[in-house]
Amino acid sequence: MKSTCNYFLRTTTLLTFLVVSFSYAQEIENSADVFLEDYSDNFQEAFFEGLKQKGIENYDRAVNSFLTCQKLEPKNAAVANELAKAYIQGKQYSLAQEQAELALKVNPDNMWYLQSLYTSLKKQYKNLSHLKEIVPYDNEKLKENLAHILYLERNYNEAKNVLTEVKDSPFKTDLSTKVQAAIDQRGASSSSFTFTSTTTTNNTTKNTTAKQTTNSNSNSAFNYKSRLKFTLKQKNFVFLETTAKEALEAYPSQPYFYYALGAAYNGRKKHRAAIETLKTGLDYVLDDIRLADDFYREIAAAYTAMGNPAKANMYLIKVKFKK
């Protein structure tokens, strides 16, 4: 009985690690029980050990365990990908590339295998054209995955270029919108700059500092944001709603304007409209963690006002910085 319990405990623990590791692998489509039937005990133990060693950052031992798995299952794409990731962590990038290519050859539709290959190439200072030469680039799903990876890596112009080669689909429309919004947001952030010039006249040195914006009129993105922040502090929600809507008409990819409109809706007890607006705006928040926190708090406030504390807590736990 004791041995049965031990086996059950070992199997349950193994299953936990396998599910975590394989949740993204497309070849594991059936239940974990079927998976256990398909692979030997030696394979399971070596794979489990590899995950454990990788988890504690002992990458050499992780590699050895995954190589054992690979000897037992030479064409297992998930194992090849785990090897690629372990090699990347161990800074053995050319070996990582070999394993990622092997995984992608077995399953070219898998985004995470492509991600491993992309990372291994980037670490070797190889560019996108090199990647295109070694993958089946005529695969439509692979091109979609590549565009998505480039977006996540913030290589927005390259993502945009790849998307021009992707067939029209809801995926392309959605990602194209996000990529363009990211490009616009990046352009808006760099549209303001300061410069200091030093001139000497009659032995007197003068420092002149000037600030330049791409749009100095009252309806520039910068001025809209300043007005909205002031109005939000004053809690004038009627004017806040009007101004935020006007700002969004002019700059539909600026996340703060969605936040301001959501706050205005909450202030006017239009909580459903607030949630819808704020969730839309979250798609445009890229790397501003504190702004994302403000979105989460405002969404939580809307759900709380609607008597849904469970949903409110779902967003409150996403907050990274506490006020």
Rank of each mutant, 00 (worst) to 15 (best):
Y258L: 06
L232M: 14
N145Y: 07
F43W: 01
A263I: 11
Y284D: 15
K75N: 15
N202V: 10
I183Q: 10
E73C: 05
Y118W: 09
A244C: 02
G281T: 06
E298R: 08
A84D: 00
N30A: 15
F321N: 11
I149D: 08
L121P: 04
T280M: 13
Y7N: 15
N139K: 00
V135C: 13
E27I: 11
N217D: 15
A188N: 08
Y137I: 09
F222S: 09
A77N: 03
N161Q: 14
Y259I: 05
W112G: 01
A264K: 03
N203V: 05
S65Q: 10
G281F: 00
K132N: 06
L18S: 01
V19L: 09
N145K: 01
K206L: 14
A80L: 00
K141A: 10
M111I: 12
K225R: 10
L114M: 07
P252E: 08
F257K: 02
H271W: 09
L232R: 10
L150N: 08
S226Y: 08
E98P: 02
K233Q: 13
N110M: 11
L152A: 06
T242P: 01
K206D: 14
T199M: 13
A250C: 07
N30T: 14
L175F: 08
I149H: 01
E276Q: 14
G267P: 00
M111F: 06
K132G: 02
K91M: 12
Y151P: 05
E165V: 04
K323D: 11
V238A: 14
Q26G: 13
Y87A: 11
F295P: 14
V20N: 14
T200C: 00
D168C: 06
L114F: 11
V19S: 14
N223Y: 06
A77Q: 01
K245D: 12
Q115D: 13
L15W: 08
E82M: 01
L248I: 09
V19G: 09
F222R: 11
A263S: 13
M111E: 10
E298S: 08
Y315V: 09
R61K: 13
E29K: 04
A46N: 13
P255R: 08
T164D: 15
S65E: 08
A188F: 04
T16R: 05
K132C: 05
S31Q: 07
V162F: 00
T277A: 04
V20L: 15
A273V: 01
L248Q: 01
D109T: 11
W112L: 13
T243L: 12
F66P: 06
I88D: 12
T4C: 03
K2D: 14
E98H: 12
T280K: 15
T199Y: 07
H148G: 02
E27L: 11
V319H: 05
S94E: 04
E140I: 04
R268T: 08
L72Q: 11
V79A: 08
L36Y: 14
S116H: 04
K229V: 10
K75F: 15
R154T: 13
K229D: 01
Y156F: 15
N155L: 06
V238F: 07
D41P: 03
Q180F: 03
F195V: 04
L228H: 01
A80S: 14
Y118I: 00
A310F: 12
L291G: 11
Q234S: 10
F48P: 04
N207S: 03
K2Y: 13
V63Y: 04
A182H: 12
T208S: 03
F195Q: 03
E82D: 04
A273S: 14
P74W: 03
